[in-house]
Write a protein that binds this DNA or RNA. Sequence first.
RNA 1: GCCGAAGUGGCGGAAUGGCAGACGCGGCGGUCUCAAAAACCGUUGAGGGGAAACCCUCGUGCGGGUUCGACCCCCGCCUUCGGCACCA
Length: 820
Amino acid sequence: MTDRYEPREIELRWQARWAESGLYQTPDQVPGRENWYALTMFPYTSGDLHVGHWFTMAPSDALARWRRMSGYNVLFPMGFDAFGMPAENAAIKGGMHPQDWTNANIERMRGQLQSMGAMFDWSRELYASSPEYYRWTQWWFLQMVRLGLAYRAKAAANWCPSCQTVLANEQVSDGNCERCDTAVVQRSMEQWFLRTTQYAEELLHNEHLDWPEHVKVMQRNWIGRSEGAEVAFALESPTADGSTEVRVFTTRPDTLHGVTFMVLAPEHALVSQLVTAEQRVAVEAYVETASYETDIERQSTEREKTGVFTGAYCVNRLTGRRVPIWVADYVLVTYGTGAVMAVPAHDERDFAFAQKYALPIEVVIAPPDWDGAPLDAAYTAPGNMVHSQQFDGMTSTDAKGAITRYLDEQSWGHATIVYRLRDWLVSRQRYWGAPIPMIYCEACGLVPVPEDQLPVLLPYDVEFLPTGESPLARSEAFVNVDCPRCGAAARRETDTMDTFMCSSWYFMRYADAHNASAALSSEAARAWLPVDQYTGGAEHATMHLLYARFFYKMARDAGVVSGDEPFTRYFAQGQILGPDGRRMSKSRGNVIAPDSQVERWGADTFRAYLMFLGPWEQGGPYDVDGIVGISRWLHRVWSVATDPPTFADAPDSPETRELRALVHRTIAKVTDDLGRYRMNTMVSALMELTNALQRARDESAHQPVDRAAWVEALDTLALLIAPACPHIAEELWARAGHEYSVHQQSWPIADPALLRRLSVEIPVQVDGRVRERVEVPAEATAAEVRALAEALPKVAELLAGREVARVVYVPGRLLNLVLR
RNA sequence: GCCGAAGUGGCGGAAUGGCAGACGCGGCGGUCUCAAAAACCGUUGAGGGGAAACCCUCGUGCGGGUUCGACCCCCGCCUUCGGCACCA
């Protein structure tokens, strides 16, 4: 057996054998094995698998394979995130139907995924755009309607003028559309929302999850809990619609006596009610201007604050003081009550605004050593209360609670908690998504589509050009329907669902992918959920990963799953960059096509190289020259496995023991590294073992190798490389005469007796500097090691005439002689 | 501005209180070849000393500190990358 290592020949052959023997089909239960659910994020059907997909999936596959060899019944499924606007946009550009475009991409990408040689269980494959899947996405929507978690409301929504649809808050980044980077504007529209805020407090508590800390922090910041008080100020004169108060949220009830004006968001409902006749023209012009501004313009902290006086006043009940009401676009209608009390002395924004418009600034918390002079900047730190009636003299920290209690007693306000998180806006005015299963009836109002009438099929034959209205609205056949309740003519909802709805539960469906009578059975849920190990990019921290957590809690409350969290462990890999260290993109011309790498080097080499690049969580540039190192290594593996040394029968020789010790140390190291997601050092350790085997083989003419130890070493090497390089491992395993398959073998266990070294080389330090080395028995005492060290001529010389003040001996590691 | 992560040879990185630079790329020298490429072998942090085996000094973003001993822990900065950003 001296033939060359031909990766592609081996890989295609074994991939075919694995598929034909059903090696990766995972039953729901296997006697004597615990289930382990490993999942990597399913790809969007963009048309081509890129290096980033491989960078997430190949190491995830290695981890799944390792769990499988460690005795688990491992589910590692794959599917496609097949709904979404890019399909529609690409289809429009290319003149193709989104469905045909998507299906063609799925075919192509499935083939690319299969070239990876991953242990995906294709029998559970799903894609979000199939009626068998979105039927249940619609079903979930109905559960949320039932639970009061889905509602329709008119609200200011993020509108992307390019995508011609609204977007969820999470899908706006720096005021731009997450997908196309167009500046988002606010539009007031009737939309469907999911009540994510109902779970805000529960979602906030993610501390116990085995997730990267920075992702958990991002989620907590996104949810943004603030404790404070809601305070009602009395309007001086009631409005035409009968409003008598304006309510504000503040985290600083201690500054309530310093309120000198009030600010409403331009979109606040009271603005048009309370504006006086003299101010109406100015206010309406201001509100109009604000409505055309993009989020980036409005939310720039650099921009000078602007505002307009409404002419109206309210009363601070605490002081009886008359407070002018302004409108300003730095106040957001979507946070708190959409109105703020302005305390310029103790808030930087209010201070700037007061200065610009010459509004009074009144100190109610004394800065340290304050002499009563006007402030030249807002004082925002704690201090002692002044000009605050009965609260004078308290610390501001104490006054927060005291004033809130007082407000409560007087029924002027109460303590409250406000979240930054908003309800999830899920309706989209686009074609390529799951239709929202609701019907509008003149007589009955909003009627859910009965569950037995699902799915509401997305019609194929539709003009899908975006117009700002759902293309489904122009399909008479789709829109016209009889009311399920009264039978009268009615109209279907024509908006479709945000694709994040589809991706919020796909991991549940894998557990029971072909169930035609339920989203998933309770047995399947019990068998597989929650996901034991999830992997994917942290760019989803406040989108997919947050939505999925919400969805799972909803599924729990709907009685479908038990448990509170969908992903027990989650690991966020870094991002793979182009060779130039920048994001890969076609326009930069720095894209590495995985297919070409596989073609040139083989899948095993490419997989191992992606793991070897560096720490997985870090990512980094793809160095096209570096991969040759992995290729050389696998050729060396091939060489040691197929070209044996000169053998001897010497089970007890020092060389045999040394070889076996290295093998077992490598087992321990590789196992530990996999447990800590350190695939880069795992590959290094495997290289070291290979190099040692090669050296032993090359020297075996003079120093023959014990046959049994050699066989143990080669078998172990095949088992240890199986997770990273499944094809060459399988080939070598078969060539060694073992039974199919290496991937069904037990993971090797390191023998502790062999891990112990008999003797160790200890560095001898004098005053912290290494001066010599000495070979000592592993269990030597400090005194013994010191005696051996001091006997060394060089050490003796350094110690001559000096006194050893202290001896530090770290067993097996180092000796340090500290001189006086 | 706030929150988080990270700064180590020419490059990717290793070592989480104990021999800094494992493993790999690249470079240099060699084998093979008419030659080149590939492959394989050797060598490779910087500076200095020695004919040589070797020896000495410096060295993990910067400045301090703790310790017998610090890439690692503590304090103060600088830089880079991510996230959030008028959230009342």
